[in-house]
């Protein structure tokens, strides 16, 4: 199809309102990365398995490779950049801090998606068991860590978040 009409998308990302004209087929992952230059959201498989592109849509974790940008019209999105509005210069989010402390990342490519999966998970499960953590992580693939230290990082983060 030639010259598909463009659609206007107004979307709040990390608290900021953006307005862009996009082709309807543009994936939300590409929109965030290439239209909004929020390259912290990574793309690993584009078929909804690896979880690297996970972002929050109205507070819930979703695969941004399985949503069209036009569908985000009028919605609220949070990406990994939204966890530290100053880019982490002052302080990391407690979850990020825990990942650093427990060596929960190596190459770091899957990490943003894992963080975004865990944010709502920890809200829903402030005291998660190891089994719950592993199940929560099972929709995000990591090829470097063997998950062991990610689990430790989540336990650490849960503790910090509980005790402030």
């Amino acid at each position: 199809m030639e010259n598909a009409p463009l659609f206007s998308v107004k979307v709040t990302v990390n608290g900021q309102l953006f307005e862009r004209e996009v082709e309807p087929r543009l994936l939300l992952s590409d929109f965030l990365r290439h239209e909004l230059a929020l390259t912290g959201t990574h793309v690993g498989c584009e078929h909804g398995v690896c979880g690297a592109c996970t972002v929050l849509l109205n507070g819930e974790a979703v695969r941004s490779c399985l949503i069209f940008a036009v569908q985000a019209h009028g919605q609220e999105i949070v990406t990994v950049e939204g966890l530290t509005p100053d880019g982490g210069r002052e302080a990391l989010h407690p979850l990020q801090e825990a990942f650093r402390e427990a060596h929960g990342l190596q190459c770091g490519f899957c990490t943003p998606g894992i963080l975004m999966t865990l944010i709502p998970f920890l809200q829903e499960h402030p005291q998660p068991s190891e089994g719950e953590i592993r199940e929560a992580l099972s929709g995000n693939l990591c090829r470097c860590t063997g998950y062991h230290n990610i689990v430790k990082a989540v336990q650490l983060a849960a503790e910090t978040l509980r005790h402030g």
Binding site: H34, L83, G88, R100, T111
Partner: peptide, 21 residues
């Protein structure tokens, strides 16, 4: 020791090839 590179990776500020624009 904790890693020097982590803060960049954790905040989405690390440059990967597809991030080059």
């Amino acid at each position: 020791l904790r890693r020097n590179e982590d803060a960049r990776l954790l905040t989405g500020q690390a440059l990967f090839v597809d991030d080059v624009h």
